[in-house]
């Protein structure tokens, strides 16, 4: 914030914490932050990308390590934890997914753990990492919770959307998928336009709701942490600690909901109506 001379006001503080580190190309070079205000769509939130990819790599590395060291004998504590995660997701995938698809359970596990880790960044005190980055690296803006960035959640849910469409076509064929979009819920040729509108809304609502639910929950949580941080320093813990404790529930729940709905949507994509 130092660069802009923002006033040390509450709104400035909040604004600052809700701004991503941006990157875009400008005049043949790379520009950052304020220079990118007019870049439009082709702006990259490098902090979201960095933290989400970093956490994804962390997840893959940890679980791969556990997988490689896995013994058939008595497992270590970490292997045990990984086993519980994998078994839990596998069980959910088996219970809620009708049909056979080897992609579902690994996809569910990845979504769950990755989103959980991204959400977990919410529990790190909001000023620690951005302030350190500002002091040490001169990075003026840094949002460390990728899931409070709508781009990240929408990216995730659109990937799921692509999978839904892909499996719908793969299982039912283009004809079957088209029929599903046009001859439901009213099976009459005159009502095809109505059906198409209804079914398209249903279909598009899936990724949108996935993305907005996750984003909304985490964004709101983050915002409340920011508001709490505006209180006198000696009183912050009174609200911050209960909220953080409550947030443990929220971050797990949101990761779980995202995974669960993904599995359910994909299961629906596999079903013939």
């Amino acid at each position: 914030m130092a660069t802009t001379g923002e006033a040390l006001t509450a709104s400035g503080y909040i604004q600052h914490h809700l701004t991503n580190a941006k990157m875009c190309s400008a005049d043949g070079g790379v520009a950052f932050n304020y220079a990118c205000q007019d870049a439009g769509f082709w702006t990259w939130h490098i902090d979201s990308l960095l933290f989400s990819v970093g956490l994804g790599v962390l997840f893959l590395w940890l679980f791969r390590k556990a997988g490689k060291k896995a013994t058939t004998g008595v497992p270590g504590k970490f292997q045990c934890f990984v086993e519980m995660c994998v078994e839990g997701v596998d069980k959910i995938a088996k219970d809620s997914f009708n049909g056979r698809n080897a992609v579902i359970a690994p996809l569910g596990l990845t979504i769950f753990v990755w989103i959980f880790l991204m959400n977990l960044m919410d529990l790190v005190p909001i000023d620690f990492i951005p302030e350190a980055a500002n002091r040490l690296l001169g990075v003026p803006y840094l949002k460390i919770v990728p899931t409070t960035d709508l781009n990240v959640t929408l990216g995730l849910s659109l990937s799921v959307f692509v999978l839904i469409v892909f499996y719908s076509i793969k299982v039912k064929g283009i004809g079957g998928f088209t029929k599903e979009l046009t001859l439901q819920p009213f099976n009459h040729w005159l009502l095809i336009p109505v059906n198409l509108v209804l079914e398209t809304v249903t279909l598009v609502a899936k990724p949108i709701s996935l993305a907005l639910r996750l984003f909304g929950n985490l964004y709101a949580g983050e915002l409340i942490f920011i508001l709490i941080a505006l209180m006198p320093w000696w009183a912050q813990f009174a609200l911050s600690v209960p909220w953080a404790i409550f947030h443990i529930l929220v971050i797990v729940l949101q990761a779980f909901i995202f995974m669960m709905l993904t599995i359910v949507y994909l299961s629906m994509a596999h079903e013939e109506h």
Partner: peptide
């Protein structure tokens, strides 16, 4: 924005949270 007492508040909160 510069470092101020907010950091202290957050540190206290964080410590309590970690303890919890």
């Amino acid at each position: 924005m510069s470092i101020n007492a907010t950091l202290l508040g957050q540190a206290i909160s964080f410590a309590l949270f970690v303890w919890f």
